[in-house]
Design a binder for these strands. Structure first.
Lengths: 208, 208
DNA sequence: AATTACAGAGAACAGTTGTTAACTGCATGG
DNA sequence: CCATGCAGTTAACAACTGTTCTCTGTAATT
């Protein structure tokens, strides 16, 4: 589908992306449920009616933003949990990776954190579905680890969700400290690392 | 201040509360940043301009809602962490307490979860400040526990924040399952309990 | 070369919004 | 008992919203 890219299709996708970018920028200071269609088109510089050529409504645009934002988050989560010899090293690497991602895509992270419990139901559901997929991937990755021997499927999924939620909390923590002085960001890193470590310790002794 | 309650003051507080209640109800299907002043007054049945007698803006009303919502959450959190002999029993009691609170004040819980990362800065900050206070209380309660011997202040606070965040996650999980069939709510309880248990295990072995 | 498809523009609509001003009625304090 | 304070009303404003319909230019198809 859509393998043939004429000038036409290219231009359409270009303004579509411009609408998504403008919306994401506007959403730094408000929620999706208050984002106006005209507001977005005005920021892009196109007529309000052009919006309908790409999205049914701002809620529809929001769902598209979920795909974009969590699409970019996808590789991060997988790498985070990938097994390595030293588990302490894995933790610090994971936290650093999250910090790096927040620095690279702050608007995406903010959008997900904000709209996960936001006022637009289709968007909430889209985020929830993606997070469930993430948790399943994390579970599969955890299952490979020899440390997961004797774990039930339910417990693995429970731990996976705990990790996913903890990642979001950490990302949101870094986001709040984005423009803060260096020492506060360092403090955030320390807290996140220790929380992750405590969870990992709990994982080690789960089967006692 | 305001110990003398004439008929006048009583009526004022009555409509003020009516505005808060109406706003909270309207916020079940949208975010605060899209809540209109007229929308609220219409729901209460007063003139739009009456709004200004109580709040400067809807953001101001939001801050007031934070106090109300987290005021009712306050006793819950304290009881949750209160020490008891059996730590397993403490966990199930805590989870049950959260479930009970969500059932009793679903709108409050939804509001906090939604606006914690929402689009209105003063409200975000108010929630953050309250959660910091909660974490400090939890830390103080944890410090009393003989199990906290040898823990640094930083680590106690780190654990306290982990507990507070986990409570919010659990509350939000119960909220999503509020009108779901019984078996899904039971599953939510199981997941929440086991996550809490894993954290507690990590806490037990922290000083190894 | 002629025809079609379609992204985007333009204008107009009914309805909504926040905010200001001047008012009314009544509980309160002197 | 009278004067003041103030919660709530009424009316009006300019600005904004989402949506519909009609139109235009041009890339794609035949």
């Amino acid at each position: 589908m859509s393998h043939t890219f004429g000038i036409r299709q290219a231009q359409k996708q270009k303004t579509r992306q411009a609408l998504l970018d403008a919306a994401l920028a506007l959403l730094e200071e408000q929620s999706l449920s208050s984002l106006g269609l005209r507001e977005v088109t005005r920021a892009v510089g196109v007529a309000p009616t052009a919006f309908y050529r790409h999205f049914r409504s701002t809620a529809d645009l929001g769902v598209a933003l979920v795909e974009e934002a969590l699409g970019s988050l996808h590789p991060m989560i997988r790498t985070t949990v990938t097994a390595s010899d030293n588990s302490e090293e894995r933790i610090t690497r994971a936290v650093e990776l999250i910090a790096r991602h927040v620095n690279a895509y702050p608007a995406h992270v903010r959008f997900i954190a904000r709209e996960r419990h936001g006022g637009v139901q289709p968007v909430r559901e889209a985020i929830r579905a993606q997070l469930v997929r993430f948790a399943e991937e994390v579970k599969a990755e955890l299952a490979k680890d020899p440390e997961s021997e004797g774990w039930s499927d339910d417990d693995l999924l429970m731990l996976a969700h705990l990790y996913v939620d903890q990642m979001l909390i950490t990302a949101s923590l870094f986001l709040e400290a984005l423009e803060a002085p260096e020492d506060e960001r360092e403090r955030a890193t320390q807290v996140a690392t220790r929380q992750m470590r405590l969870i990992t310790i709990g994982r080690h002794h789960w089967l006692d």
